[in-house]
């Protein structure tokens, strides 16, 4: 396999909590805590997890909207910082956010909003405008009708198309979609997903697709990464992960999807309680406080990502690690290996 387009290693971001006496630090939110993953050129990596698991922080770290505390990001073999400037990174990695309205300057027309970036980057005015009109047409908005409009004159679906067009203005290699379709109504969401699929095929894009909607992630992604409290719980090919999730948390997350069959409704909630707070994550495996299969080893030792038999499938669970000390470790590993 060729070198990955994007390679993330040991990425960490902790936010200090202020609010004690005289603004002293009262704790740390361990939003992203040492995550490692690769993204190959042309693939779509889905990222799923509950609120507070660090999916959005990861997205922001990838385009350097926040600076990581430690760890490295390599794009096309070059490390951000030493080898590649943030400016160059952002030309190649663009982002689309959930809130289509907050993402657009209310005082700029759609044409201006899209041409603004390229012009700042040195493109001549009339060329940037021509590019903007071309991109509007490409995302399915007739430039003659939409180029002069302001954000409040567009529907949510149309605004999100403009945000996608703007992200494409630099001809990026990677587009990070952070809940980009979550705020749209279902019928409009399907239109935007079709558009994203078309653009990917035409332009050879690579997507990082963050969503809480597991159906959408399954449809869009080649591989999926499940995050829990700032760490990777499991990462693998989408069908392998959905049909046979290795991590108990992935299994619970999938089981929590509402049933679509009235005769087979969900009878028991797969997990009790709310996701714990990333401020003081539990020691050992972070999921052990909610896990039905937890053993003594789970509260003491962080399992780390373990390579599953199937290619490219990794899971952070003691059950799959032979000799980990978990009561089910050997038998289960023996079955799968």
């Amino acid at each position: 396999m060729s070198a990955p387009l994007l390679s993330v290693s040991g990425l960490t971001k902790h936010f200090p909590l202020k609010g004690g006496l005289f603004g002293r630090s009262t704790g740390t939110v361990r939003a992203v805590d040492g995550i490692t993953f690769d993204v190959a050129e042309g693939e779509t990596l889905g990222i799923v997890g509950e609120s507070g698991c660090g999916k959005s922080t990861t997205a922001r770290l990838l385009v350097d909207l926040i600076t990581p505390d430690s760890g490295s990001i390599r794009l096309g073999g070059k490390e951000i910082g030493p080898d590649l400037s943030v400016r160059d990174l952002r030309r190649q990695v663009q982002m689309v956010f959930q809130d289509s309205y907050a993402s657009l300057n209310p005082r700029l027309t759609m044409e201006d909003a899209i041409s603004f970036g390229p012009m700042v980057g040195g493109m001549v005015g009339h060329k940037a405008v021509a590019l903007a009109r071309d991109l509007l047409a490409r995302v399915g908005l007739d430039p003659a009708r939409f180029a002069g409009r302001y954000p409040h004159e567009l529907s949510g679906g149309q605004r999100q198309r403009v945000n996608i067009a703007r992200a494409l203005a630099f001809s990026p290699k990677i587009v990070v979609l952070d809940e980009a379709v979550s705020a749209l109504d279902k019928s409009v969401e399907a239109q935007v997903l079709n558009l994203l699929a078309d653009l990917k095929a035409e332009l050879g894009l690579t997507y990082i697709f963050i969503s809480h909607d597991l159906n959408v992630v399954r449809y869009m992604s080649d591989r999926v990464m499940v995050m829990y409290l700032g760490q990777v719980a499991e990462i693998g090919p989408v069908e392998a992960l959905y049909s046979a999730p290795a991590h108990p948390y992935s299994r619970a997350l999938l089981a929590a999807m509402p049933s679509m069959d009235p005769d087979r409704r969900t009878m028991e909630a797969p997990l009790a309680g709310d996701p714990p707070n990333p401020i003081n994550p539990p020691p050992g495996c972070r999921f052990h406080t909610r896990c039905r299969l937890a053993d003594t080893v789970c509260s003491g030792t962080d399992p780390g990502l373990y390579v599953m038999p199937e290619a490219g499938h990794l899971a952070a669970c003691h059950i799959h690690i032979p000799g980990s000390g978990h009561r089910d470790a050997k038998s289960r590993a023996g079955v799968t290996a």
Binding site: S155, K186, S187, A190, Q191, N194, R218, Y219
Partner: peptide
């Protein structure tokens, strides 16, 4: 029918979604 298709439950990967065009 359109709403059920847009739910993506059991949607085939790679196949185009039968999206309802336009807006309400």
């Amino acid at each position: 029918k359109g709403l059920l298709a847009a739910n993506l439950h059991g949607a085939v990967k790679g196949a185009r979604l039968h999206a309802i065009p336009g807006a309400p």
